[in-house]
């Protein structure tokens, strides 16, 4: 057996490509920044190129662009209603950014920036703060009634209100950890099975077959997690816009 050791977490290391120091703050251009920029460029190039002809009868590429637009627009209409369409740019941007980050990360030797909690938590915090501000702007102090479920017996209030408040503040954490843990676990698993293939030599064909299946599963997870991140954003937005209780 080869003495090669596998370190499944090595792929998540951040190293600066262009060291920049602003006073005491390290603002280096890292491989993470590079892949974030690549994903923004890829999204922009895809949408611009696909919509170049603006044909009435869409071609293949234009169909894909229209499909992604309709997908997110339908998600907002179903979950938030017509009033949510004014937040379409934010939600569409979030969806495409997360989706392309996940998919670009599936390329071998690529860096998956969504596998870093600081990236996903920043996005989740933007959603959380934004949604809370929208709620207070739209409903004023009435938004606080959100923490008081409708028709609650008075003796339940001191028990349930802290639980509601806690679960509200846990939202950005669960939103970010879900995406980050899925990506980290998936890529670590791919690496571990890839290591088995290398170590076993000729018998590595068995883990290789499994590796292909796991890669397919990871592609599904990449799509699904972008979808889940976006739909939960829609659900939170719906809570703020049309208070249910």
């Amino acid at each position: 057996m080869a003495a090669k050791t596998i370190d499944p977490l090595h792929q998540f290391e951040i190293h600066p490509l262009l060291p920049i120091k602003l006073g005491a703050v390290d603002v280096s251009f890292t491989n993470s920044s590079l892949w974030m920029m690549l994903s923004v460029i890829a999204v922009t190039a895809f949408l611009t190129l696909a919509m170049r002809h603006r044909a009435l009868v869409p071609g293949r590429l234009q169909s894909v662009a229209e499909l992604s637009y309709e997908f997110v627009a339908g998600m907002i209409r179903d979950n938030v209603g017509q009033a949510g369409m004014q937040y379409f740019p934010l939600i569409f941007t979030l969806f495409m950014f997360v989706l392309f980050g996940n998919l670009l990360g599936m390329i071998p030797y690529a860096f998956t920036f969504t596998s870093h909690i600081v990236v996903t938590f920043a996005m989740a915090l933007v959603v959380f703060v934004g949604v809370t501000v929208i709620g207070f702007v739209k409903h004023g102090l009435h938004f606080l009634r959100f923490f008081l479920p409708h028709g609650l017996p008075i003796w339940m209030v001191p028990i349930l209100v802290p639980i509601e408040v806690l679960s509200y503040f846990l939202r950005p954490i669960s939103l970010s950890v879900r995406l980050f843990a899925n990506m980290t676990a998936g890529h670590a698993m791919l690496k571990v099975f890839g290591g088995f293939t290398v170590m076993l030599g000729l018998f590595g064909i068995a883990p290789l077959a499994l590796n292909i299946a796991v890669t397919a599963l990871e592609l599904l997870v990449a799509l699904l997690q972008a979808y889940v991140f976006t739909i939960l954003t829609c659900v939170y937005l719906n809570d703020a816009l049309n208070m249910s209780h």
């Binding site: 669960s174 879900r178 843990a181 899925n182 676990a185 699904l224 979808y227």
Partner: peptide, 24 residues
């Protein structure tokens, strides 16, 4: 179903995260 799958799967991944935190 897909949404429920993703939400259920995430709870297992929180355990994975806990393991990583304990180890590293």
């Amino acid at each position: 179903a897909l949404l429920g799958f993703a939400l259920a799967e995430a709870t297992g991944l929180f355990g994975f995260l806990l393991g990583l935190m304990i180890l590293f």
